Amino acid sequence: MASDLNNNLPNGLYQGGSLGIFNGIRIKEQRGRSGVETTSGTGTAQRTWLVSNTENPQAAKAALIDGPVLINEFDGKFIESLEWDTGLSSDSWEFTAHYSAAVPNLGSYTVSIDTTGGTILQTTSYEQTRFAIAGKQAPDFKKAIDVQDGAPQGVQRIIPTLKINVRAKIPTEFIYSPMRYAKLIARLTGTTNVAPMFDDEFAPGELLFAGASGDVVAEDPQLSFTFLASENATDLSIGGISGITKPGHAYAWALFDTDKDSTTGLLVSKPRAIYVDKIYGGADHDLLKIGHAPTVSA
């Protein structure tokens, strides 16, 4: 894997003891950069600078953040934290930036997934084979599952379930106030998307917003958003009833009739109708501003 760890920086601040100067404050990157890469594609790294010619730690930090040294991104990773301590003299400060591949850049996001299964009670099967004792015939239950006393008991079935955890850094300009943004998240929780999301990978109705967690700080908060994904379905066939349309997070269920099996004369259950119920309301998930780059210059 290509890496620029422990190589000279393109701007020369690391090479040969060169210095960066900002408002009279000197910035020098110390040797000893380090990093870790994993086979799963994650990793961490860190860099250290000596900032001198000021006794004010806030001025030193501002010079490092706003000055000529690019510190937000390093080795394909984004800054997670910045720590500082006094240097060898009263007018010097040592800053260490920690970087992580799991931290998104401002206006960007990272994605982790979990597909460990959801289940539903399924009362009709896709295909049913009958076997009867010698001299008897098995009645046709029209694919109803485990019919006891005239009612299908069904079976728990694992269904495709995609849980998406999105870690995003939201630009300050979209926050307005931490409490207002928190209330927005609360209002959108438990709703499905009314417009395509994430580069149009998910059609309207396929994403259910399950909420967010994190500290809604006043400046560029980094939050974790959870979505449940389920594909919309069209032209389904259930229990002999075809042409069924089911949005991803709607609930489908069957109404059963009791009928007489034409072969055996026994009473059997068979689907009479399929109902598709809308459980969740829709909302504009773009209001969360996930993946929106800032439009206002810092």
Rank of each mutant, 00 (worst) to 15 (best):
S262V: 06
D235W: 07
W253S: 14
S3E: 15
Y181D: 14
F22C: 08
T39H: 03
E173M: 13
S125P: 08
G117T: 09
L208Y: 05
A254V: 14
I120G: 00
I158F: 06
L223K: 02
T110N: 02
I113K: 02
T86H: 15
L266G: 09
S297R: 11
A62S: 10
I164P: 01
D220C: 10
E80T: 04
I238E: 04
I241T: 07
H249V: 12
G240K: 01
L162K: 08
D257F: 11
P294F: 03
D284W: 10
S125V: 03
P294K: 07
I65S: 00
L88R: 05
E55K: 10
A60D: 06
Y275S: 10
A60M: 02
G239F: 01
R31V: 05
G107P: 14
S90K: 14
L236P: 08
G41R: 00
I79C: 06
G135N: 15
R167F: 00
P10Q: 08
T44L: 13
T263N: 15
T234R: 06
G12L: 14
V276F: 09
I159F: 02
Y99P: 00
R31D: 15
Q15D: 13
F95T: 10
I279D: 13
E94R: 12
A298C: 10
A144N: 07
Y14M: 09
Q156M: 14
A195D: 13
A233M: 14
E231D: 12
G20P: 10
T172R: 09
L255H: 13
A151Q: 07
V194Q: 14
A60C: 12
D259W: 04
V296K: 07
R47W: 00
P247C: 05
L19E: 15
T110C: 02
R167S: 01
K142H: 10
M179K: 09
G282W: 04
